[in-house]
């Protein structure tokens, strides 16, 4: 079988800080096949955004340091020169950020901002770029694209700005789209519109998507495969249905249990929410054992001393837990 579109192996992104090295991402491996949607979930500080920024090498070095390998279409992105990298960003791999308010340039009109990537990567003239920009705005469902293309970001609502961000990201037909919390800043009815748009565009454009989010509801709606991160490590990976039905890692089980389910008053399943006690450990100390041991209800002395390896639990399903060996052994 051909190599997947993106293969991340043993990614380590560390930051030097005045009080020690912060191991924001510490040995993460995963892959993305062409046309696939992979979600990376976890709570704030688990390293999911740093992972995505590392793929595009957007981490300032120093204080950051990226190690491991990131192979995109067979080329190791970490070995490319800066000009080579620049020809990939926004062209083969593009990114949508969380804040549609701050990630657009306030003094350039929408058309210029969409056209910028087209002129740079595809050598279009200003006129051609604007025509393509109008086409892109139409694709992402903005009414009156001919007029909107001349408008500035402040004239658009939050949902429209996120549509513009998507138009910019898709302008050069990327093979991989990284979406970092694309709907977190939006209201639910607008979020529903944007998720619908992303699903539609995936069908028509066919780009692979890496979706970074903390919202398990969003994951369930759009992802095919899920990577769960905790404290800079991948603790579990599984196809989406399997992850929600039979989570193997106690952290994943804890996350799912701590979320109230919409519709609980209809089914009479209003129970007390499961809490994950304690706090995320500091990433500045090296943790010898399992990163989740300090909060895990099943942890033993063994977990504190020896870090569990990622082991297959079912086809396509891996988890890093000593005790998640047998099916349902610690099912919540």
């Amino acid at each position: 079988m051909a190599e997947p579109l993106l293969v991340v192996e043993n990614l380590q992104t560390h930051f030097r800080t005045p009080d020690g090295i912060n191991r924001a991402v510490d040995g993460v491996s995963f892959h993305v096949n062409a046309g696939e949607t992979v979600a990376i979930v976890g709570e704030s500080g688990c390293g999911k955004s740093v992972t995505s920024m590392s793929i595009l090498r957007l981490i300032p070095e120093p204080p950051g340091k990226i190690a491991g390998s990131i192979r995109f279409q067979g080329r190791d992105l970490l070995k490319l020169s800066e000009p080579e990298m620049r020809s990939i960003r926004g062209n083969d791999i593009s990114m949508i950020f969380q804040e549609p308010m701050t990630s657009l340039n306030p003094v350039l009109n929408i058309g210029r901002q969409i056209g910028e990537t087209l002129r740079l990567h595809q050598g279009l003239s200003a006129r051609e770029a604007e025509a393509k920009a109008v086409e892109m705005l139409k694709l992402v469902g903005i009414p009156e694209p001919g007029r909107r293309v001349r408008e500035y970001p402040h004239q658009l609502s939050g949902g429209m700005r996120q549509r513009v961000m998507i138009a910019i990201a898709l302008a050069c037909n990327p093979k991989l789209l990284i979406a970092d919390e694309p709907t977190t800043a939006l209201d639910v009815t607008i979020q529903a519109q944007i998720l619908e748009l992303m699903r539609d565009l995936k069908r028509t454009v066919g780009a692979a998507i890496v979706l970074i989010t903390h919202d398990l509801g969003v994951v369930a709606e759009v992802a095919e495969r899920v990577v769960v991160m905790y404290a800079g490590k991948k603790v579990e990976e599984a196809p989406v249905v399997e992850l929600f039905n039979t989570p193997r890692h106690p952290y994943t089980q804890g996350l799912l249990g701590s979320m109230p389910k919409l519709g609980s008053s209809l089914t009479g399943t209003e129970t007390r929410l499961a809490e994950i006690p304690g706090l995320v450990p500091s990433l500045k100390q090296k943790i010898p054992g399992c990163v989740f041991a300090s909060r895990c209800p099943h942890a033993t002395d063994f977990c504190v001393k020896v870090a569990p390896a990622l082991e297959p639990k079912a086809p396509g399903h891996v988890a890093a837990c000593h005790y998640a060996l047998k099916e349902g052994a610690i099912a919540a």
Binding site: L195, D215, G217, A220, E221, V240
Partner: peptide
């Protein structure tokens, strides 16, 4: 509003009203 909230149940069919 109710139909727009993403629910953590992959593959479930629900009625969706997109505003």
């Amino acid at each position: 509003l109710l139909s727009a909230v993403p629910v953590p149940m992959p593959g479930k069919q629900r009625e969706r009203i997109l505003l």
